[in-house]
Design a protein around this nucleic acid. Structure first.
Length: 291
DNA sequence: GAGCCGTGGCC
DNA sequence: TGGCCAAGGCT
């Protein structure tokens, strides 16, 4: 009732093996937790660590970031990837100041309404920053549950209702325990039950794992992904934005044209950056990061 | 709901 | 080498 078959072992393992990440410290502010969660979307911890530290040093509160131009956030984001997240975080800061008195909201509903905050991030902030009871279902948890409970190597490509129901069913009743359970399962997936080479010998619940009991059968079915990058609009967008990030001010169009030969794709990528609010076309024909 | 959105490291 | 993967969200 207050427990699931794995919680005791997983919580004990976490107690002994959790990484010392700064956004997990007792004195970490809800804002610092939100910043970490946005940065960690599709981005490895090792690359987030220095970016998070620099960000928190420069903008310790939502009000600090809200007072800055959004272009400063894009430049500070540097090469973390998915730069719309920088814009989202800036918009979060302004919303938090205007609608929540400068404090990161603690309700899942209010969090979900913030730009760039989806079901996972809202649950993570409510749970990790505020100690609330929410099911945490990220790529790590999905993989752990797929193996342990369902007995398959990988979860389905798209998240299913069944996975949500399972995560909720496993949630310990007590809020503080549930919050530790969520981060503990994530950590287990990140450190032990990894995608490519799971360390079952170090897993606290390997004895209860359906996938291991079945002999660790390989994933069957269609290939899981096919995410090419070279030659895509994404690559062109990255090159264009890098020019603006590395410049101290507005740049002439020729500087942007120089990064990609094919004009149709180049213009399409630039237009998309402008539409996204990541690039500002000036009246004089030059381009700049937004104000 | 499938496709799109950056970047870098790893085997 | 290149496909795969990394604390997702939006359209």
């Amino acid at each position: 009732m207050n427990d699931n078959p794995y919680s005791t072992a997983v919580l004990a393992w976490y107690q002994a093996n959790a990484r010392d990440l700064p956004w997990r410290h007792d004195d970490a502010s809800p804002w610092s937790v939100l910043v970490s969660e946005i940065m960690l979307q599709q981005t490895p911890v090792v690359r987030v660590l220095p970016a998070w530290a620099a960000w928190m040093e420069r903008w310790p509160t939502p009000a600090d970031l809200a007072a800055a131009p959004s272009g400063d956030a894009v430049r500070m984001w540097n090469r973390l990837g998915y730069p719309r997240r920088a814009l989202n975080l800036h918009a979060c800061a302004r919303t938090i100041v205007e609608r929540h008195g400068g404090e990161v909201p603690d309700s899942h509903t209010d969090l979900l309404a913030l730009p760039g905050v989806g079901p996972y991030t809202a649950a993570a902030v409510a749970s990790f920053a505020y100690g609330q009871r929410h099911a945490i279902l990220d790529t790590n948890v999905r993989r752990v549950l797929a193996r342990t409970v369902t007995g398959v190597q990988y979860p389905p490509k798209a998240q299913t209702r069944a996975e949500v129901a399972l995560a909720e069913a496993l949630l310990p009743a007590e809020a503080s325990v549930a919050a530790r359970w969520g981060v503990a399962v994530m950590e287990l997936g990140a450190l032990v039950c990894t995608a490519r080479s799971p360390a079952c010998g170090e897993c606290p619940i390997s004895g209860d794992c359906a996938w291991r009991a079945a002999g660790r059968p390989a994933h069957d079915g269609p290939p899981r992904r096919g995410q090419t990058y070279a030659g895509t609009d994404r690559q062109v967008r990255g090159k264009l934005l890098a020019v603006l990030r590395d410049a101290s001010g507005p740049v002439p169009k020729a500087a942007l044209d120089a990064v990609w030969d094919e004009p149709v794709q180049r213009e399409r990528a630039l237009d998309a950056l402008v539409a996204d609010g990541l690039v500002d076309p000036l009246d004089d024909g030059r381009y700049a990061l937004p104000r």
